Simulated scan of single mutants.
Amino acid sequence: MVKDVCIIENEQGSAIIIALLALALVTLLGISSIDTTCIELKIVRNERMYQRCFYVADSGWKDGACWLEGKSEAPSKINVNPSLSEDELKIVRNFGDGAANVLNDDFPDSSEDDTIDSIPYWYNIQYSQDQIVAGSGKTYREFIYIVKSNANKEHEIEVRLKKIYKIGY
């Protein structure tokens, strides 16, 4: 006896096909989630490095400000070579070797630059101008300096500082 089987109405095995399709869909979602996570981790890593370099550059100019604060008289310029640019001639303190052939003054501990959290930084202080302090006569002058700080050759911060010195005592 031959039995006729209708293939259209036969649903045996359909559950396994539906399960495989669902598994494939979940697998694709998982793979795309892993890719998204990897991209997000790279973004976070770059943001963290950016923040670290910014804070190192911020510390660099503060280091220069501390050096300037420790001076009891206006510091003299360290570069005297007339072939240098006007900005290079105005430098009163250059810490580190941020550029080739930069004239440096004395470094602490015989190092040419410093690091914070393994990120190199340098700074320089340039004389900008000076003026008589109002109401003090010619004995007190307000000096204005430009402090540039750089971290990892990527982040540069420039600040202007004022300091009053007594002149000719």
Rank of each mutant, 00 (worst) to 15 (best):
V5C: 06
V5R: 10
S14T: 03
S14A: 11
I16T: 12
I17H: 03
I18D: 09
L20F: 08
L23N: 03
L23Q: 01
L25Q: 10
L29N: 04
G30L: 05
I31L: 10
S32M: 09
I39Y: 13
E40F: 05
E40H: 04
L41M: 12
I43E: 15
I43L: 15
V44K: 11
R45M: 13
R48S: 09
R48Q: 09
R48G: 09
M49R: 15
R52K: 12
Y55M: 02
V56I: 01
V56C: 03
S59A: 02
S59C: 02
G60T: 04
D63P: 04
A65P: 08
A65Q: 13
C66W: 15
C66P: 07
L68I: 00
L68R: 00
K71M: 13
K71P: 08
K71I: 03
S76K: 10
S76H: 14
I78P: 00
I78Q: 03
V80L: 15
N81Q: 10
P82D: 02
K90C: 03
I91A: 02
R93P: 06
N94C: 15
N94V: 12
A100P: 03
N104W: 14
F107W: 07
P108Y: 13
P108K: 11
P108I: 14
D109V: 12
E112N: 15
E112G: 14
D114R: 12
I116P: 01
I119A: 02
P120W: 01
Y121K: 00
N124P: 02
Q126T: 09
Y127W: 05
A134Y: 08
S136L: 05
G137Q: 05
E142Y: 12
E142D: 08
F143T: 06
I144W: 12
K148A: 13
N150Q: 15
N152R: 04
I157C: 04
V159Y: 08
L161E: 02
K162G: 04
K163G: 06
Y165S: 10
G168C: 02
Y169R: 12
